[in-house]
Nucleic acid binder design. Structure first.
Lengths: 244, 244
DNA sequence: TCAATAGTGTCTTTGAGACACTATCCG
DNA sequence: CGGATAGTGTCTCAAAGACACTATTGA
């Protein structure tokens, strides 16, 4: 609020609606997926859309996003971050709607994701094969979200949020490759991750192996260091994020 | 908008107010300053605050920010970027207000900045000596804005937005030092800037010099390259920005 | 033994930082 | 000339990339 606001009676003017939209990412079969819901009403009937809803008067934006997330997936206590606020005038044909978009990262091994509550269609889409047309400006929001995810992957421990409790280093590498969309050198990846000293070995209780080859060492995230510590995976010249 | 929204009559529910607040930066005497306005009414009467105002129903968020900027400073066509959206429930004691914050960078040599239109108090503050207490959560917003500015300086050509048309490399270095808050090596700075190849020499029409020492070479930004090209000044490990 | 998967070592190149050097002016 | 300011050269060290190597299993 500000100086100029004083001159107005706050109740007198028409106000826009405010929603939160949550772009929910997860890994399924080592591939990055995003959750979309199918609309059943005008406008964009039948189109897939990013889940979201109105912000209540007595909840913060982040709270609204968390509520929305739980309603859609049943998932709580996940990584959530504000992405951007979209407020073009014509983005919703019904009325003026300003949408605060969030990103959520859901752990791959949280199997309890109930994607279909109530009766409407909800589905995980691989980010490589999204529906042709999305509702509203949601294609734009999604593209922006993926860009942000890529960008932050390189200088944070964000990727670990997508991992199961235990994982191998090559699995982690695979996730980086998925999200960055390029191949990484195995040796350099090992070196980089080990130097960061964010992981600890899991004592492997080896069951019967079916695979050939040398058995995999499993790791888990060191809770004392990771997530707080800044981790720079790589600096790149070609990050092209808007505003972020 | 989204699935869940269908169930609501959009006109039926109470809505929050939406404002834009614009953190306006400039350089005065080579020092980073920010524009604040002094409040004359309850709440936070007498406190300094970030300029801002309500978003009209028929203008986009960015448009609202540009309008606000022009009203406060008379400045147009400047660099503007969305910062973050602040929406805690109690941040404004009068009513629920969601504020979309923007950063604006105003060129140092745009002397036409009329900081006092109408009669209320408007002032540039050096970021090193801000008022003790700011209105609402504006101290938080400001701190966040300065953090973002620092962070982006390192991998964009943002700093050039603050420069006059012509400048010397040591002036540019000084600005980087101002905003980053640390000394930089002269030789390395020259090297880095020259390698980037973003500047072109200005043919100096030398007038009478009063200063001693070797005369300064002036430069200007190459419009063909800068601002589009990614420029990485330095990668640092200790960037700690929230959400950005 | 070989094929398959996991993991390591090491050489080369690049770029950041430190800092000493040269250049050009005024008086 | 000497002091002052502008600008350059160069050495060292650390990190990134490329890629060949070793390790451990099942068949």
């Amino acid at each position: 609020m500000q100086e100029q606001a004083e001159r107005y009676d706050v109740t007198r003017y028409e106000r826009p609606s405010v929603t939160v939209d949550v772009v929910i990412f997860t890994l399924i079969h080592q591939e990055l997926h995003v959750l979309l819901v199918q609309r059943r009403n005008w406008p964009f009937e039948g189109c897939w859309a990013i889940p979201g809803g109105f912000v209540d008067m007595d909840e913060s934006l982040e709270w609204a996003a968390r509520r929305e997330l739980e309603e859609e997936t049943g998932v709580r206590d996940v990584y959530l971050e504000q992405l951007y606020t979209f407020g073009e005038v014509g983005r919703d044909p019904r009325t003026r709607v300003i949408s605060v978009a969030y990103i959520a990262l859901v752990r791959a091994d949280v199997q309890q994701i109930r994607v279909s509550e109530e009766s409407h269609a909800v589905r995980w889409f691989p980010v490589r094969t999204l529906p042709e047309q999305l509702a509203f400006d949601h294609a734009q929001i999604l593209a922006y979200a993926i860009g942000r995810l890529r960008s932050k992957l390189e200088y944070t421990t964000l990727a670990f949020q997508l991992l199961p409790e235990q994982f191998s280093i090559l699995e982690l590498k695979h996730i980086y490759e998925q999200i960055l969309g390029e191949k990484l050198d195995k040796g350099n990846f090992y070196r980089k991750i080990k130097e960061a000293d964010l992981l600890e070995e899991v004592h492997v209780v080896r069951e019967e192996r079916k695979a050939r080859g040398r058995p995999t060492q499993l790791w888990r995230v060191r809770r004392d260091r990771a997530l707080e510590k800044q981790f720079v995976f790589r600096w790149r010249e070609d990050r092209l994020e808007r505003g972020g």
